[in-house]
Design a binder for these strands. Structure first.
Length: 595
RNA sequence: GGUCCAGUAGCUCAGUUGGAUAGAGCAGCAGCCUUCUAAGCUGCGGGUCACAGGUUCGAGCCCUGUCUGGAUCACCA
């Protein structure tokens, strides 16, 4: 990397000129802004302490040193306290000839280190996946891909919250009003069917609360004593006691949901190395709690409920087992963490979970630590922001949830009408068109979601469908298809461009800025990995596409008469297309050959 | 009320961890298809970076306070 070369030279220069090596924090190297000449810029202000001279003087002295002592730096200029360095064409040429045949440019070799286990998706089995899950799934999948690109071994896991009061609610409502409806008899997707009964339960529950309140009960009390809720609670208890009938119904309804989820996952392109089920981990969690209780780390209240005291850590007391002995969310998460640790002994346990659960994960780590699990420190909560609608948070009960399947279907239709309106590809078969619409709609959706910094709350306006022009997935995909079209024509014309070394030293501005941008790819992948941020990849892909389109409009490629120049431009186009494809792949998005 | 997060153009978002005149897209206006894909390119207009102090050569970024919005502090998951 040229940056590190410059940094080293800078250290040597200050040592030679001013008798001191600067600490790393004082070395600031950045890319030169386009309005100035040069490729890289050294900020000299921090070095004045060492040089004890004014900025201009210091920069001049350093600049001279660079020229005299390096082959890579050919020129410099000083503006205010900024030392702009020009890197030799030889460096850029060698760099380009190196990456041209390197199909893994930007990717690291696999490292022999403990793997990272990354959990994402984590659906509840009482309702279908919605836009919030979409962000979760896309983030988790993409971060996993990015970590792999950094050479880190990754295990992708899903934890299905398949038990608990929520699924009992759906089961109960189905028992009462379902009339034995199944996905087969209704033709409805299983997760949708079960979700409908969850909504039904909630309606009835609200009704009962209202009745109780009308009869003079306080609202809080009513919420806890509505008959239908008591019935659901009873069902949960029966479930934990292993009641045959309850278990059978539970199993059947969950199977419906899984069949539905599988369709959604598969369409979205989301997969896992391993799926955990809460019903298989919560007992382990209970055992951990019992153990902690015996060791006196946890305590029992008079009613029999078990708690962890976190008040000394600035948090509250946390319930771990209810008075009736049933477990809560935290209980099973303790068990899952333990199980996962035993399965993989990972270097890191990453949880992709919304930021509304920040507190939960603080508590989880603390409780595990108290229970003596040193590896609790390797737990990292990849906390992402909510997806909101223009009018605020999505509420399933108010019907403002954006369903994942509906969203994908809508995007598909948009891709279809947009493509048809442009009137290209009459020669496409139905299958080819279908493929294209899929690639475009998912590319648009994935890019739209992943280009936003994961930590930030993002807004989605269902009324305005996701764009296909401007800073979008299809724009990037289009650029790829456009390049592929040129490369096909080059093949037809019999212009070879691979395996040829061009001795290029007279570069056009547009060529060079594109090349310099491609040069950044490895650092972008590295940074995206360190920050768990697909957004960095997305923004990079956009910049590359934009830069290429400017290059494309400014210069001719195929019809360029000078053979060397033409070949170089074809090579540059080729590397650009490859980089775009790989960057998009890290987001889980495909790129089409034609569009 | 406690804790945490956020506030950048009409809208949706960037801003390389403190550097040069704060950038894109959408929306609006004006141009460019007999050069290789116009899902593209070029130009114009649009900003008190919520507000007030502070730190320093330099602050959208760091610190303090204020305002606004959100999350959370559940025997829901």
């Amino acid at each position: 990397m040229i940056e590190s070369t410059i940094a080293e030279l800078l250290s040597k220069a200050t040592l030679k000129l001013y008798g001191q090596m600067p600490p790393e924090s004082l070395i600031q190297i950045q890319k030169t802004r386009p309005e100035f000449t040069g490729d890289y810029t050294v900020v000299v202000f921090p070095l004045l302490k060492i040089s004890k001279k004014n900025p201009e003087q210091t920069a001049l002295e350093l600049g001279k040193y660079f020229i005299d002592n390096s082959n890579e730096i050919t020129d410099f200029n000083v503006i205010k306290g900024f030392l702009n360095l020009s890197v030799s064409n030889t460096y850029w040429m060698e760099f380009f000839n190196r990456i041209l045949p390197d199909n893994r440019f930007g990717f690291s070799e696999s490292k022999d280190i403990p793997s990272v286990v990354i959990e994402y998706s984590s659906p509840n089995t009482n309702k279908p996946l919605h836009l919030g899950h979409v962000r979760n799934n896309l983030l988790g999948w993409s971060v996993a891909a990015i970590l792999k690109a950094n050479g880190i071994p990754v295990k992708k896991v899903n934890l299905v919250n398949d038990r608990g009061i929520h699924i009992c609610k759906s089961m109960l409502a189905w028992q009462k009003w379902g009339q034995s409806a199944t996905p087969e008899t209704t033709g409805q997707k299983g997760d949708k069917l079960v979700g409908d009964y969850y909504v039904l339960f909630d309606k009835e529950y609200k009704k009962e609360i209202k009745t109780l309140v009308d009869n003079g009960m306080k609202e809080d009390e009513a919420k806890n004593s509505a008959p239908i809720l008591l019935e659901a609670k009873l069902m949960l208890k029966k479930w934990e006691d292993g009641d045959d009938q309850v278990r059978k119904l539970w199993y059947e309804m969950n199977q419906w949901v899984y069949a539905g989820f599988d369709i959604t996952y598969s369409r979205m392109g989301i997969d896992f190395d391993k799926v955990y089920y809460e019903s298989e981990t919560y007992l382990l969690g209970k055992a951990l709690v019992e153990d902690g209780l015996q060791k006196g780390i946890l305590f029992k209240k008079e009613d029999g409920s078990v708690w962890c005291d976190l008040t000394l850590d600035g948090l509250d007391e946390k319930l771990l087992l209810r008075a009736d002995g049933t477990s809560v969310y935290m209980t099973q998460d303790l068990g899952t963490a333990q199980l996962r640790y035993d399965d993989y002994h990972p270097g890191k346990l990453v949880y992709v979970v919304g930021n509304e659960q920040n507190y939960h994960f603080d508590v989880l780590k603390l409780v595990l630590k108290k229970l003596g699990k040193e590896w609790a420190d390797s737990i990292e909560h990849l906390s992402y922001g909510m997806v909101e609608l223009p009018e605020g948070k999505m509420k399933s009960r108010e019907g403002t949830v954006v369903d994942a399947d509906d969203l994908m279907e809508e995007m598909y239709q948009t891709a279809k009408t947009t493509t048809e309106a442009l009137g290209k590809f009459d020669d496409f078969t139905e299958e080819e068109s279908h493929q294209l619409y899929n690639v475009l709609s998912l590319g648009a959706l994935k890019y739209f979601i992943l280009k936003v910094d994961p930590k930030k709350t993002m807004t989605f306006n269902p009324a305005e469908s996701i764009d296909f022009t401007g800073n979008t997935g299809p724009f990037i995909q289009y650029t790829h298809a456009r390049i592929k079209s040129i490369l096909r024509k080059a093949d037809e014309a019999g212009y070879p461009y691979l395996d040829i070394k061009i001795d290029w030293n007279d570069s056009n501005e547009k060529e060079k800025s594109l090349l310099k941008l491609l040069h950044d790819f490895p650092q972008v992948i590295q940074q995206a990995g360190e920050n768990f941020s697909p957004a960095l990849i997305a923004n990079f892909a956009y910049e590359v596409a934009k830069e290429f389109n400017q290059f494309y409009h400014a210069l001719i490629i195929l019809k360029e008469e000078d053979e060397a120049t033409r070949t170089f431009r074809l090579q540059l186009s080729f590397v650009t297309a490859r980089t775009i494809r790989q960057a998009m792949k890290l987001l889980g998005a495909e790129v089409p050959e034609r569009m």
